[in-house]
Design a binder for these strands. Structure first.
Lengths: 248, 248
DNA sequence: CAGTGGTCTAGACCACAGA
DNA sequence: CTGTGGTCTAGACCACTGG
């Protein structure tokens, strides 16, 4: 290489990108999980950048699950992401004994999101039961779910029409059906206000949206839309049922 | 409720959040896929907010796959996310005939990321083949992958040690082994500089990182780290092999 | 070249947690 | 109350695309 050409071709690296790298290495070597970082104003001053630039780096690190920020409290070093099993080896309905979800309540409605209606193949006006469930892992809420079940597919409509009792009733009736199979999609989304509150995050926080379609008797009998915290969760899909391995 | 209490308990909604809602509805009703939006300065002026605030709303919409922004060009309405099958019904090694990946090249190295070394159970200094592969869907690059295969597990070390020929050689040797099973994790990440370039995105762009562990003969024989564009992709995991359904 | 989105600054005020 | 992160502003300049 010629004299002075050392840095040619290198587009100037954005400050926030460089900052992120520096911070990331500092987190590895100089901080331990749970430790609290200096506040944003101090950090920005220390690195000689505007607070907005420093925040851009912190946002990336939070997205990657390295940091956790809480208003009024501070920025702390996040623990490694927790592995959350999404694909139970057993092919069972939601609500089968031993799954990791706790039903909260349920309602009947004839208004479901268009995307869900398309999967359920329901017409406008069809009554659908919506069961809300939460999932907790190691003491922290990790996911919120809305489970949609068309009234048609349930053998006998439960007496209750709302509340926790109705949630249990809908789940119980599902178990009586034969499950032919299911498939799933995973995509990135941002938390709706309601889910954000349950997940202890601000609205718009990044989430992994898992959509599961349950098939019974040749039709889509239920659709579950599960919203996982993207910062703290690593979804695991296991086929080797003997060992946890990647789930650790 | 008493007079004047109508709005109590409502924390003021952030402007960017409200903006996002308004824009989202406008996208549904007044714009079609591929259409180009007014530029950021005009949009900000139209809504009476600073450009930074407008950008915060646009960023969210891009994260959700509603918009696509390109420097020097403009902001366009994104097509619906493309469904990408991650879980082939067939349990096969990467590189089996008919998979959707095209090998690019491969190298031998004794330096692999710590997380990968842990999965492979390799010691520092062990030689590992690293195969780079790309995945294209409907003409667009959707994923980049690094496939790590310890030299030990390959029956005969190929003659070539680098380049496209070596990539094919490593993949071919994998097919001769018996595959016991595999498991996967999915998590949110940000694109490294190299992957970002391949995916036609800026560094740090949100990606879905799929880590697949292939087991053969009681040990982890290979690990694939696949990086999917989170803005344009919806990962599909199918078990009902008869129909595409959710993949559409 | 002109126009776009991407980066960055130096402030300000607000919402929230905890003492 | 103080201190934290969250929101917002009104600028500026840079990097890239396309004609």
């Amino acid at each position: 290489m010629g004299v002075g050409t050392t840095q040619l071709e290198t587009a100037p690296e954005p400050k926030y990108w460089h900052l992120k790298t520096v911070l990331s290495e500092a987190l590895d070597s100089e901080f331990s999980v749970g430790e609290i970082l200096p506040n944003e104003r101090d950090l920005a001053a220390r690195f000689g950048v505007a607070r907005a630039t420093l925040r851009q780096a912190l946002e990336q690190l939070e997205l990657e699950g390295r940091l956790q920020r809480r208003r009024g409290v501070g920025t702390t070093v996040a623990p490694p992401r927790v592995g959350v099993a999404v694909d139970p080896a057993r092919h069972t309905w939601p609500g089968a004994t031993g799954d990791d979800w706790q039903p909260v309540d349920a309602v009947r409605t004839d208004r479901v999101p268009a995307a869900v209606a398309r999967l359920l193949e329901t017409a406008p006006g069809d009554v659908v039961h919506v069961v809300r469930r939460n999932r907790v892992s190691v003491g922290r809420p990790v996911a919120a779910e809305l489970l949609y079940v068309p009234s048609e597919v349930l053998p006998g409509d439960a007496e209750s029409t709302t509340g926790p009792a109705h949630a249990h009733a809908v789940l119980a009736e599902l178990q009586t059906l034969e499950l032919d199979g299911h498939d799933r999609t995973v995509e990135l989304g941002s938390a709706r206000a309601e889910d954000a509150r349950l997940l202890d995050r601000l609205p718009g926080a990044p989430v992994l949206v898992v959509t599961t379609r349950y098939v019974s008797g040749g039709r889509t009998a239920a659709v579950a839309v599960s919203t996982y915290r993207a910062d703290t969760c690593r979804l695991t899909f296991g086929e080797s049922e003997t060992e946890p391995l990647l789930a650790g």
